[in-house]
């Protein structure tokens, strides 16, 4: 049966946004998400970043589950945002020194930025 599907997506911000459309029950499908998590990284040196841990829980759970993302050659806030995007929890974007995430799908907790010294 021939069918037409008409969809509109509007970016309401001054930054480029990546949006995933048409995915059923996808954590990255954060279109129309209204909850924003902001992490102020002002004053933090990014020269020593090697990995990021993100704590996540769904509604109803009591404890956060940590998710680990490795940074390879990423020493900017945008690099951290790109790395965290790979975890699939919402879409990250950078505004100045602040990391921002928009999602309605899960509850996001702390971000742990870690430097592991070489042996």
């Amino acid at each position: 049966m021939m069918n037409e599907v008409v969809i509109s997506a509007k970016n309401n911000t001054a930054e480029v946004q990546q949006v995933n459309l048409f995915q059923y029950a996808n954590l990255a499908d954060n279109a129309n998400a209204t909850t924003r998590y902001s992490y102020d990284l002002t004053g933090y040196s990014l020269n020593e970043v090697t990995s990021v841990t993100l704590s996540v829980k769904t509604a109803g759970e009591t404890e956060y589950t940590p998710y680990f993302a490795e940074l390879i050659g990423q020493q900017t806030i945008q690099g951290i945002a790109d790395t965290l995007t790979s975890l699939g929890f919402g879409t990250w974007f950078v505004d100045g020194n602040t990391l921002n995430l928009n999602t309605n799908q899960v509850i996001i907790g702390d971000v742990d930025i870690v430097y592991i010294p070489p042996p």
Binding site: A9, A31, A33, T35, R36, S38, G109, D110
Partner: peptide, 14 residues
Amino acid sequence: FSPTITITTPPVTV
């Protein structure tokens, strides 16, 4: 880093 949580206008409206 702990988040500051705010309810905002959706950055992307579909």
